[in-house]
Design a binder for these strands. Structure first.
Lengths: 232, 232
DNA sequence: GCATATTTGTCCGTATGTATA
DNA sequence: CTATACATACGGACAAATATG
């Protein structure tokens, strides 16, 4: 590449990837973080030329990075019209929660079979509580997402894990559309705590019912924040 | 592009995609078919230069096509060493069936809630039986895969459907490694018929048990054909 | 509706880095 | 170890599609 150190600004927080990556992967990762951090808002167009000059890489390489991001469904590619940070609609949010209600019961069953998994979940609940106590709602949101990620990883299926990561990534994209981070994440802290207690007690039916209630509530909250109540 | 009609040579066998696609998508689709048809065997290296000249497109475009195929996990990308048609190992086959045993119960439940789905499944069973009667084991294999695809689509979750498509595509890649198409697909015809009967009768427990037995049998068969019995 | 500017899609030539015979 | 083949990446060019005035 032309400039050997493209990492002085936005990349300084990268923990020095041990795994070797191509320039395109590097650029894609940088963009991914900027999207996840809300620096690139949903709907923003990413222009090849601008990014190429900003990152000091060629347009071809930028295009490869775009393909990688499109694969993760973080951006949308419109032929001859460019790529845009994806905007998740209310209908898509409903689909995402429908999918969660469908597959997360598998995670509950997996957790019930594995005490280590329950212990790992306990750490996430604690992290969420700590973050909430410090009014750090971004951290609380991350802890919440991790809670469910860990639970699903317990299923032991790479394909299912990857799919669920996808679902969570898209949901995070939806979260970016609101600024009320406390209203968004605060309710989850207690809910996860309750769910954990049911899992620790080995109460399968209770945990399954609790999960469904949780997901229905979460969907309602997210939709209400996205779509500030049109009837009021 | 330079030449306005990119469709006269290597692409002539494509049934004229109605949806507009970029040259890269077009090339990716052509390669995907050649892999699915067994013309490009697992393990084959796909060289940028060779494909670029063969398809009369630039290496840049070929690279974009490779990204698309890598996304579908049809090819593997090794940095600085090129892309290869993926070889599915025995361990991966076991993982694929473990995933199927995990998620397909959701498909059974969905089918039990939807008579239309059961009807659609009936068509696939018939198609499989017809193909078997005509000794067309490739068609029988396709019908079998479609049977399970339709069942999972009944869940109504795009994410789950996409994940399952992925699983089936990788399994198909494994099937390419054997030439005994009859031995591979013949056992499934009857099994699907039985499963359908249980679904039509509304016997949930029977169908779930039947599914698990089916998947364990299928895994055994596939592994034995891939890995021609080392003890014999 | 038209003319123009911008941006994407694609190609080419070339240089450098990497893996392997 | 050198040589070679290939992937990676760059930059410039132009056509085609789209956006803009």
């Amino acid at each position: 590449m032309v400039s050997a150190e493209p990492d002085e600004d936005a990349l300084s927080d990268l923990p020095a990837l041990p795994k070797r990556a191509s320039t395109a992967e590097y650029a894609a990762e940088t963009l991914r973080r900027q999207i996840a951090d809300g620096k690139l808002r949903p709907g923003t167009q990413l222009r090849e030329g601008a990014i190429a000059t900003a990152f000091s890489i060629s347009r071809n390489t930028v295009r490869e990075a775009f393909r990688l991001l499109a694969h993760k469904r973080l951006v949308e590619h419109a032929l001859h019209r460019g790529v845009y940070v994806r905007e998740v609609s209310a209908a898509e949010v409903r689909e995402l929660y429908a999918t969660r209600r469908l597959v997360q019961p598998l995670g509950i069953d997996a957790a019930l079979r594995d005490p280590d998994c329950v212990a790992a979940l306990g750490e996430r609940v604690e992290a969420g509580a700590t973050a909430a106590a410090e009014d750090d709602w971004d951290a609380a949101g991350t802890a919440n997402i991790d809670f469910h990620r860990v639970m699903m990883a317990g299923c032991g299926s790479d394909h299912v894990t990857a799919m669920f990561e996808q679902v969570l990534a898209e949901l995070r994209l939806a979260f970016l559309l609101t600024t009320d981070h406390k209203g968004l994440h605060a309710p989850f802290v207690g809910a996860n705590h309750q769910l954990l207690a049911l899992l620790a007690a080995g109460d399968r039916d209770g945990a399954q019912a609790g999960l469904q209630r949780y997901l229905l509530d979460a969907e309602r909250i997210v939709l209400s924040l996205l779509h500030p109540d049109p009837t009021a």
